[in-house]
Design a protein around this nucleic acid. Sequence first.
RNA 1: CGGGGUGUAGCGCAGCCUGGUAGCGUACUUGCAUGGGGUGCAAGGGGUCGUGGGUUCAAAUCCCGCCACCCCGACCA
Length: 490
Amino acid sequence: MSKDFSTREENYSKWYNDIVTKADLAENSAVRGCMVIKPYGYSIWEKMQAVLDKMFKDTGHENAYFPLFIPKSFFSKEASHVEGFAKECAVVTHYRLKTAPDGKIVVDEDAKLEEELIVRPTSETIIWDTYRSWIQSYRDLPLLINQWANVVRWEMRTRLFLRTAEFLWQEGHTAHATRQEAVEEAEKMLNVYADFAENFLALPVLKGVKSENERFAGAIETYCIEALMQDGKALQAGTSHFLGQNFAKAFDVKFTGKDGKQEYVWATSWGVSTRLMGALIMAHSDDNGLVLPPKLAPNQVVIVPIYKSDEELAKLNDKASEIKKSLEALGIRVKYDNRDTHKPGWKFAEYEFKGVPLRIAIGPRDLENGTVELARRDTKEKATYQQTDLAHKIEHLLGQIQSNLYQKALSFREQNTTNVDTWEEFVNQIEGKGGFVYAHWDGTKETEETIKEKTKATIRCIPLDNKKEEGKCILTGKPSTQRVVFARAY
RNA sequence: CGGGGUGUAGCGCAGCCUGGUAGCGUACUUGCAUGGGGUGCAAGGGGUCGUGGGUUCAAAUCCCGCCACCCCGACCA
């Protein structure tokens, strides 16, 4: 089967690419570093959006939309922010083209912009500039806004979904009257992300904070969720930042409190992107293709008829429609594929590759016996089921598949999480099987940088529920109060 | 931006060294058979050989320039 398709063992990154392109999720576009998200891939993204959007609204947020372009001068207002993004910005300098004498289309040099526009790599600056006029009083707070948007970061090397020059995401930007409230907001949204990752993506995540090195440009504290991929590398799946008063000061956003005193507003921002698609793909898929958790699968069940004659097909059409209706009545997403242009075996392989969680095959034999054949994508088990009460059996199975995927990913993470105490152990682990490596660290930027230089491993996070423990830094031997999580990362 | 590699049918590739009718697999179209795991047989359509120049009677093939993409580094969600 799938002989032209790479396995994880042979070439992990080719395997990933093959799944993305051959399962029709996305492909490279004519524009360097930018992808085309194909209908099947986009429908999974839409599922994610729908769930997250509801979670945001349930926690009191509203959607709004801010411009794609940001005046260059805005970036100079928050020093560390510009430093973080300056090297990867697309800049608009002109607003008109013209036809040159040789017939070619060229930029009209007369149409140079007075001030260049930056294509947003993130929207803090334009949003905080706007918030200045929205916020006067404590009565205007908290301001809880989310935006679904595209952003551009001019990456040197790109990979479908994991790192593209343009990507889709949501960015929440909130304003609060007190420090504590903003910190609580940042933590709340981190929990929303973790909840989403675990209950929908079926992906266990570590919740933690970033070290200073890895912190978002302009943040006081960056909270994150970190997931482990099947090749032992970590993937940052979402971040939530406590921004303090940095942006309020940079954009002069003040409010008058109950006491009549003016104070700068406290801020958060938080985001997840189409990178989650990459996480989803790498977390569960196998050498037979994509594996989707039922909660996010565009089709949860596919029904394939097996027949020889038109009469047989007609009977199967009736039975399949009946089954489809009973499933849809329970809110299950079903596709009945009775195309005559492809054979059953072809369809089996196709839907397997595309990760459809459950397949029903039904043929003349089943019509006689009152049965169907059910095949699970996650375990590849096949079994014959009586048609009686089939919809509820399937509903139950979908639930099982969802939790099985989570459990599998969780035990993988546990098997690939290690504690190390010496430099030698650390290097062996990072360069061997990888995974999350808990080790003591002296807490300095310099040490983290040296470790990164030597091993390519970075501190993924300092877990929120970390237990305190005396120890010695694996590199410098200086005292440490807790272990932090190291890994090589995407 | 440094190192390596590749551009030939929609996709994957051979041909290039040693210049002389552009090929294979797959996909596509048609017909017949087939139908419980990518079906078989037959016929057919599809190419400015990345691009510009040079050498030659003759260039996919040799020479020079350019462009694009991929991989490995540095940078990053």
